[in-house]
Nucleic acid binder design. Structure first.
Ligand SMILES: [Zn+2]
Ligand SMILES: [Zn+2]
Ligand SMILES: [Zn+2]
Ligand SMILES: [Zn+2]
Lengths: 157, 157
DNA sequence: GAGGGCTTGATATACTATAACAGTTCATAT
DNA sequence: ATATGAACTGTTATAGTATATCAAGCCCTC
């Protein structure tokens, strides 16, 4: 399966896989996957792009699901806590997780041209953990965000 | 020299080394290291901690060096462009660079307890670059920020 | 059916960052 | 020496991101 998310692909699978994983996980852990939370997750799943909280809020508001910031921030907090979405610190924005179910420190590639965001496979940060450990630093979470050009945008430059 | 910046150390060396390197670099490249820029850099050098733009601004204002946000953001932009300071995306805050002179993608350790921030040696992100390259992604800049507990704060927990 | 925990609604506010324009300074070119 | 222009600073206004707080509703359970 070399088709990764920068290339065109059957995106409906991304959506249904992620949503099913989330539904299952909430079911198993008695988490309340409420309409607002579910809708925010759907919105983030619609594309492999990061969205700002206020962009999401605007969509929610149009649909009559809450029009104030705390609504969306609370939903994002829930989704983040349970690993369904990640925050992209560099962009102050949020993306749906592409590796649902697994507990992981995500690492991202952000295309500055098409603005797509893709999660790397396998959390390639053992090197960082090692470097930190060698200084006696105990790592609890790692932010890794690579910005640049995706394969498609390199061609069309 | 295993004394790294989480431990107590002769910090005046950090300050003077960084300031000298900056002065030299500006001299060599005909950059205008103006009073505001120099003072902002000094403020960031005073501790190995990240400071918010408005924290810096507050100090500047007390000293009569400009009291409006653009003043500090412009100074930070200059200092960042020329590699004297880095932004910590996770904190929306800024730190003085600990490896002046070298052009580098920084990588940080952030202690959540004492809030000190230390730059790792050697930009340990070849693993990430490799992973990205294998997907055809061309990396231009990398954010690496590890959050956790520094050696000192692990003991006192 | 009363209590308690969690979710949502709503208001207000805090925090972070930039746009735009005016005034100054300083180096350079005529 | 003066004009020109680029870059820096001052200032006002505004945009964008995030949280604190309190009130009201829902759901589970005891
Ligand atoms: Zn997809
Ligand atoms: Zn993920
Ligand atoms: Zn020091
Ligand atoms: Zn540095």
């Amino acid at each position: 399966m070399p088709s990764h998310e920068f290339q065109s692909h059957d995106h409906s699978h991304c959506v249904s896989d992620a949503m099913n994983a989330a539904l299952l996980h909430c079911e198993k852990n008695s988490l309340k996957f409420t309409p607002v939370r579910q809708r925010v997750f759907e919105i983030l799943l619609s594309e492999h792009k990061a969205m700002g909280a206020y962009d999401i809020l605007e969509i929610l508001a149009k649909e009559g699901m809450g029009s104030q910031p705390p609504v969306v921030y609370r939903a994002l907090d829930f989704l983040g806590t349970h690993g369904f979405v990640h925050k992209i610190e560099k962009l102050n924005a949020f993306v749906a997780c592409e590796h649902p179910g697994s507990d992981h420190d995500p690492a991202f590639m952000i295309c500055r041209s098409c603005t797509k965001v893709v999660e790397m496979e396998g959390s390639p940060n053992s090197e960082i953990s090692t470097a930190a450990k060698s200084m006696g630093f105990e790592v609890e979470a790692i932010v890794v965000e690579a910005e640049g050009l995706c394969p498609t945008c390199q061609d069309t430059e």
